[in-house]
Design a protein around this nucleic acid. Sequence first.
DNA 1: TAAGATTGAGTCTTCAATCTTG
DNA 2: CAAGATTGAAGACTCAATCTTA
Lengths: 168, 168
Amino acid sequence: MDTAQRSLPKHQMIWNRAHQAPDGDISSIETYLLFLRVASDVLSALQVHLGQYGLSDGKLAVLMLLSEAPNYSMTPSELAQQAGVTRGTITGLLDGLERTRLIERVVHPKNRRMLLIRLTPRGLDLLNQVLPQHFQYIRALMANLSEAEKQQLLVLLGKLDQGVVALR
Amino acid sequence: MDTAQRSLPKHQMIWNRAHQAPDGDISSIETYLLFLRVASDVLSALQVHLGQYGLSDGKLAVLMLLSEAPNYSMTPSELAQQAGVTRGTITGLLDGLERTRLIERVVHPKNRRMLLIRLTPRGLDLLNQVLPQHFQYIRALMANLSEAEKQQLLVLLGKLDQGVVALR
DNA sequence: TAAGATTGAGTCTTCAATCTTG
DNA sequence: CAAGATTGAAGACTCAATCTTA
């Protein structure tokens, strides 16, 4: 069976071109295109899932990071670095989280250039409500894979990631 | 070896919580988190790669779709549907592509509600320059996977995608 | 000068509202 | 009214410029 049959028309085009190309390496392209499609499906499903709680991936990350920080507090820069986004992005996420009272911005006692971001009780409550649901969501998503298949997938994803890293 | 060790701090947090949870299903969560990380790595690498030509994933899709259309022409709605984005998004992509003269908007001869988007010679040239490079890029990305591993990955991705579809 | 945070411009995406034409 | 395209508002992201404080 030809997996590319189920692809988007835009992928079908690449597919056609690859067949015409001198050194097409069809299986790499087929696998890559399927990966792209599954990745964007998984990502957009996650967005929908978290959207039900008014959260995004980035916002959830901020909440989780704060929940394990001493005093439920960190600076914006620390959050940016640990969540893997820029400081500019963190500013935007914090604006949203502050608007819904899930975090507070307080002045840093030691250094007036910095802020301390503190998880509010309301934020902690939401997190404790969301996380179990989130685990269940992940379990449902992976339900079609056996234990052995998950281990396989782990290995293969590792190799793919090595390829990405090598191109950086 | 523990793959989660290489994860972002934000993933480490989920990881900790999962271990505390009553029914953690650790391997599902571990696999899901690695998938998320590899997916965003692959997607952002693609963005960087296409950015070198002033293109994005969506813009490349538009160019490819047009390159195989009769007369190098399609309507915005057709493009939206086949590229898998909304009509609003297409308007924005076309604005960008028109600014750099890769496409033109011409009035539809049959129906004045519609436009015809036509690939310019310049657009076709760029596409013919980009595509071979793109294939080579994909080949490099997948270089760590053997033929058998690519086939395995194809199967596993299919199962993961079934999980996503089931949740919709 | 440098570090921390914010703001502004720009991209890509969505959805809802609007305008034109059928 | 319905269909096609655009626009506007909003979120999430980047990078570069700016403002404040050290």
